[in-house]
């Protein structure tokens, strides 16, 4: 058996006006622990309002390059009932835009169909990566748990480099030395 448990992808929301975005992943033995591990790994610093975790195997992903091959369309299974899927995109290549972010939802009866519909619906941006996630696979933090999960990070000033003001001292030493040399 794998000594490292399973992988859950982690999505964090940093501000009320920003969507959830993929932060990375955690290993966990089950969903409940995955959410806690996500908090401990990714919320050591402030600015998290909400966390989601998703078992990695529940994610259907395609890069634009992969989409050039249409084989995935034929894998479509229309057997299951229609359900809600969340659509994520990577919309840019610069450091700020390079994360996979939540852009909206579609109803479909398979991940493949959800992607087809997403391609029709969310086509306003240059997209490099698509992720399709069934809503039922997402584990979200309870709103009532948010204070104990996210607020404490605001008090941890010791993780902020401004708590170690070394530049003024170095500047002072430098100007003292320059005065000495003159």
């Amino acid at each position: 058996m794998d000594s490292q448990w399973q992988i859950y992808q982690v999505f964090e929301k940093e501000r009320a006006d920003l969507p959830h975005r993929n932060a990375g992943s955690v290993h966990a033995s089950d969903a409940e622990m995955a959410l806690e591990n996500a908090r401990d790994v990714f919320v050591r610093r402030p600015n998290c309002l909400s966390l989601w975790v998703v078992p990695e195997r529940a994610i259907f992903s395609k890069t634009v390059e992969e989409l050039q091959d249409n084989a995935w369309r034929t894998e479509m299974q229309n057997t299951s009932a229609e359900e809600s899927y969340l659509v994520f995109q990577k919309q840019g290549q610069t450091a700020r835009e390079t994360f996979v972010v939540h852009v909206g939802d579609v109803a479909a009866n398979s991940p493949q169909q959800a992607l087809e519909r997403a391609l029709e619906t969310f086509d306003d941006k240059n997209v490099f990566v698509w992720w399709i996630v069934p809503e039922r696979a997402i584990i979200k933090n309870e709103a009532s748990d948010a204070p104990s999960m996210f607020e404490p990070a605001h008090w941890k000033k010791y993780r902020n480099h401004l708590s170690y003001p070394v530049e003024p001292i170095m500047r002072e030493l430098k100007s003292a030395q320059e005065m000495l040399e003159e």
Binding site: M1, S3, Q4, W5, Q6, S29, D30, A31, E32, M33
Partner: peptide, 15 residues
Amino acid sequence: VREALNAYAERFEGE
């Protein structure tokens, strides 16, 4: 420890 959590997940989470 890791085995125990796997065992728990198998028993209770159906994962």
